[in-house]
């Protein structure tokens, strides 16, 4: 919110110049804690559970990075942000890395000075609506009141889509997903729009999920991924390879259950050996030790484990892999090799 923006401005103005851009790894290790920028709360992606412990698909990536860098997936301080504050928080140095349902775009990359990590969820923007309204297509939404989270690609896509289709609507600006649920539940808006994954999570949180549906139209591409500040290539590499390691582990069948066994001694699959450091010293290239990926995978499992546990078909969110299946299984998840 506003307070955070002023705080960030204050931080930028503050007396001690921010620590130099390079050396995020050293800073994090000296601090003994990773500051990970996440959402205020989107069930399945990043939200505190009933015991106050942060869980979710994005949270698992924070923990994997902390495990690789600090040796312990619990040494994470989660910094909750709204769509509007997330980049300021990251750029002002309050956060080290961001995993927050964030769409990779050109302006964010070039103008907001972010470095994106590989996409960890291929998404698109959808519309959530009450079944009783009898609407079957987004084209019939003329005149509707639509809740949108400000500071997102969502509000830009929405403005474009309605303009292109020549229909009008009333935008109802909200700050967080929770506010979105409140306003949608109270019928302040007919429609709630955000990334389809977020809608699935929102729908699961409604009183009677079966009374609501997601319209067939997906109006945008939302490649969601992590991000770091520009200017520290080593730190960006760490983020990049931790995400890749999680996907590669799924490709190779390395899970949190069997990773210790695989890592005990070099096997006859060189790919697994390189990933787990039993052959060569890939970790040293990004400033880490040989077992960096072993720890990352132990912390939250490989990509599939984290997906299934947090947002998969057996969870209330109930997302299928779809585009996010491995490229060998008909999806487009395709990680650069570790070699």
């Amino acid at each position: 919110m506003r307070v955070t923006q002023f705080a960030a401005l204050g931080a930028a103005l503050s007396l001690t110049a921010m620590t130099a851009q390079a050396g995020t790894l050293e800073d994090v290790q000296a601090r003994g804690e990773l500051n990970c920028v996440v959402t205020v709360g989107v069930a399945g992606f990043a939200a505190p559970d009933e015991n106050g412990k942060w869980t979710g698909f994005d949270v698992d990536f924070c923990r994997a990075v902390a495990a690789a860098v600090l040796g312990d997936g619990e040494k994470v301080k989660f910094v909750p942000t709204t769509g509007k504050t997330r980049f300021t928080v990251l750029n002002s140095g309050e956060g080290d890395i961001l995993f927050r349902n964030t769409t990779e775009t050109m302006s964010r990359d070039a103008d907001l000075k972010l470095t994106f990590l590989p996409v960890n969820y291929y998404d698109g923007q959808g519309f959530l609506i009450r079944k009783e309204l009898g609407i079957t297509s987004a084209k019939d939404l003329g005149g509707a009141s639509i809740c949108i989270q400000t500071g997102t690609t969502t509000e830009l896509n929405l403005a474009d889509y309605f303009r292109v289709n020549g229909i009008d609507y009333e935008p109802v600006a909200i700050e967080t997903n929770e506010e979105g649920i409140t306003n949608y539940s109270a019928n302040r808006c007919d429609v709630y729009t955000t990334d389809a994954s977020g809608l699935a999570s929102t729908r699961a949180a409604l009183d009677d999920p079966s009374a609501h549906m997601i319209l067939p139209e997906i109006i945008s591409k939302e490649p969601l991924g992590g991000a770091v500040r520009n200017g520290d290539d080593q730190w960006a590499d760490i983020g990049l390879w931790v995400v890749n390691a999680s996907i590669i582990a799924e490709e190779l069948g390395v899970t949190s259950a069997n990773v210790a066994e695989h890592a005990a001694a070099a096997g006859n699959n060189p790919s697994i050996n390189r990933l787990l450091g039993t052959e060569g010293d890939m970790g040293a290239m990004i400033g880490l030790d040989k077992e960096w990926a072993v720890r990352a995978i132990s912390a939250g499992g490989n990509y599939a484990e984290s997906f299934d546990r947090n947002i998969g078909p057996d969870t209330p969110i109930g997302l299928s892999r779809g585009l996010n299946a491995l490229w060998t299984n008909g999806g487009i998840l395709y990680a650069a090799p570790i070699r």
Binding site: S107, T150, G151
Partner: peptide
């Protein structure tokens, strides 16, 4: 801003700021 009324803080100090990254 708490209820999404689009005043100065919500427009130029909120969405514009965020979409352009021009905090200062």
């Amino acid at each position: 801003i708490a209820i999404g009324y689009m005043d100065i803080v919500a427009t130029i100090g909120g969405i514009s700021l965020n979409q352009t990254g021009r905090e200062m």
